[in-house]
Computed example of a mutant assay.
Amino acid sequence: MKRLPLIPTVLVAAAVATMIGLGVWQLQRRAWKEDLIARYQAAAVLPPVAWPNLPPADDSLLYRQAQGFCTAVTGWRAVAGRNARGESGWSHIAACGSGAEGPGMQADMGWSKDADPPSWTGGTVTGVIAPDSRHRIRLVATQPAPGLQPSARPDPSATPNNHLFYAIQWFFFAAAAAIIYMLALRRRQTPPPPPSQSSPRI
C-alpha cells in the first residue's frame, strides 16, 4: 500500500476542518439569532417609550412602541416597502426636527403606490421603532399621514435567520471534499491494468 502524500493530505484535512468549524459557527450564530428574535418579540409588548434624543448604540429600542413629536419636516425619502396588506410600493420617511438636541427623528408616515411625498408637515407620531439603514432606527407610524396607507408593522419574526442553511452548506462542502480526496487516493493506489498483449500474426 502506497503512503499517503503528506502535503496534499495536510491541506485537505485543514480545509475540511475549517469548513466543519464554519458549520459549527453558523449553528452558534443560529442560536444567537433565535435569542435575538425572542428579545425583539418581548420588546414588542413592553410599555411605550418616548422617542430618544439620540439613537442608542445598541438595539435595545428596536420593536418598542414609542411616541415622538415632529416639530418640522426637513425632508422626505421614499424607500421600497409594503403596506399592511403586503402590497409592494413606497414607504415615505420624513426627516423631522424634534425640538431637542440630537439628529431628530425619522418617521415612516405611510405607504403609497408612487414615490411622491405627502403634504404632512409634522405633529405627534405614535408607532413602532424599526431598524433604519441610514439612521439606525425610525418610527413607523400607526396612523399614516393624510393620503397614505399604513406601512407594514415591523415584525421581529421577519429578521433573517438563515444560519442553519449556511451550516448545512459548510458540512456538505466538508463531506464532499473528503469524499473526493478519498476517491482520488483510491485511484492513485489502484495498480494500473497490465498491458494487453496482442496475438501474434500468422
Rank of each mutant, 00 (worst) to 15 (best):
D59Q: 15
G89N: 05
W90V: 09
G104T: 06
L62N: 05
D59R: 11
P118W: 00
W120T: 01
F69T: 13
N162M: 13
S91H: 13
R153P: 07
Q143C: 13
L148S: 00
P48N: 02
I168T: 15
H92V: 07
A141V: 03
Q41W: 05
R153A: 04
L148F: 03
S112A: 12
R136I: 06
I93M: 08
G81K: 04
N161Q: 13
P48Y: 02
K113N: 14
N83K: 05
W76I: 02
I137T: 11
G123M: 07
P56I: 05
V128Q: 04
D58I: 08
G81T: 05
W111Q: 01
A43T: 10
Y63N: 01
I93N: 06
P117K: 00
P52L: 01
G86M: 08
K113W: 13
F165Y: 10
A167T: 06
M105A: 12
W111T: 02
Q41M: 06
G110M: 02
C70H: 05
T159D: 06
D58Y: 09
D155W: 08
V49Y: 04
T71F: 10
P144I: 00
Q106G: 11
Q143K: 15
Q41G: 06
S119R: 09
P52S: 04
P47I: 09
S157N: 14
G127T: 03
G99E: 10
R39T: 08
S133F: 07
D108T: 00
A66I: 07
V49I: 14
D59W: 08
S157E: 14
P156E: 05
D58M: 07
A95N: 13
P154S: 06
D114V: 09
G102N: 08
W170N: 11
A78I: 02
W120A: 01
R77P: 07
D59N: 15
I168F: 12
T71M: 15
A152Q: 08
P56R: 09
A50K: 15
S151M: 03
H163K: 11
